[in-house]
Design a protein around this nucleic acid. Structure first.
Lengths: 179, 179
DNA sequence: CGACTATTTGACCCTTCTCAAATCGGGTGG
DNA sequence: CCACCCGATTTGAGAAGGGTCAAATAGTCG
């Protein structure tokens, strides 16, 4: 299954099944009191929508932040299922710490880390100076806990300092080592 | 197994086995470049150290933020194990969103939410005006992404506004509905 | 009692938030 | 193909919330 940037993969409350991210980056939101609120990221190898195996319905809404490929997450024998679940659990905990780190420190650090994270999610072509697609500023803001205006200004600064260089429309090259 | 506030439950890199939190709240840290960095929370019902089932060693260091009780997380038949893992995974994802929410918004909101979260972790005695033990300011600061001084000042303000009321040493009563 | 750590408080400054408005794209219907 | 609309991005100015540094207090544990 393929999705383009901004496409909704599934919606909280709808019935469905689990998927594994093959390529790209997914934003997960849960329904808060004041509309949807950012609730996590999923990256290459991560499983999304595993809760459908218990509740039949998605708990989160998943939106592609980058061009995305996913595949059905089906697991064979009981033993394989168990291994798969264990791995998914370990990855989920790892992700929690990763995403948390994106909300600490100065604005510039947060965005630098997020871009590094995206570079990591892209399958590490060009480990030196990876070129990554940029999510919408609105998404960057939600993820990092900053305001859109701050994100805009900070990205301009990073660009002036030469840490990133705009490439094609909505693509930037990182001039620092990601992660 | 019982631990008191501040006690270390296990340390990243040591061999061990998984546990389930029966009562209390656990802080998880992973080893970052600059020493340990906050990497998540675990609450009543959550499983910690599940990664030992794959790697034999803990990935995170776990410290009790409140008086803590845990039990060995052993699972019976293959089917029970699978259900247990599914539940643990769903809870882990839920926790990710919870903890993320503790790092967004104003300082006062973050701390209000954290206290509400702790109240929820306490087994909901006194749903109206729950009385909760306070973690160290240092821990509150790490979790919310604020500075210790800001936490101190903000708690004073909440107290002046009557939203919380100091009880015994290191215990506060919440005068608002948690979560 | 004494060494240490945790918490509080003050002063000052910087980063980020807010509110407003201009600009830029992309897409649509004439 | 062009005029127009609407969401996304940029930019500015000003206010404020937190961060930072310093120092005083209050607890804790031997």
């Amino acid at each position: 299954m393929q999705f383009e940037r901004g496409a909704t993969v599934f919606v909280a409350g709808m019935p469905g099944s689990p998927w594994r991210v093959v390529d790209g980056l997914v934003r997960l939101d849960r329904e808060g009191l004041e509309g949807p609120e950012f609730g996590g990221l999923a990256r290459v190898g991560d499983v999304i929508g595993a809760e459908t195996m218990m509740f039949d319905r998605y708990t989160y809404t998943a939106v592609a932040l980058l061009p995305l490929t996913i595949e059905a997450w089906c697991h064979g024998t009981a033993g394989e299922r168990e291994q798969g679940l264990l791995l998914a659990l370990a990855r989920s905990e790892r992700r929690m710490a990763d995403v948390l780190a994106l909300r600490g420190g100065r604005a510039a650090e947060r965005i630098r880390r997020l871009f590094g994270f995206i570079a990591g999610a892209m399958g590490s072509r060009d480990a030196d100076a990876p070129c990554i697609p940029m999510p919408r500023l609105r998404d960057i803001a939600d993820i990092t806990g900053l305001q859109v205006e701050t994100v805009s200004r900070t990205i301009s600064q990073l660009s002036e300092h030469g840490e990133i260089a705009p490439r094609a429309r909505r693509y930037v090259q990182l001039n620092y080592a990601p992660e």
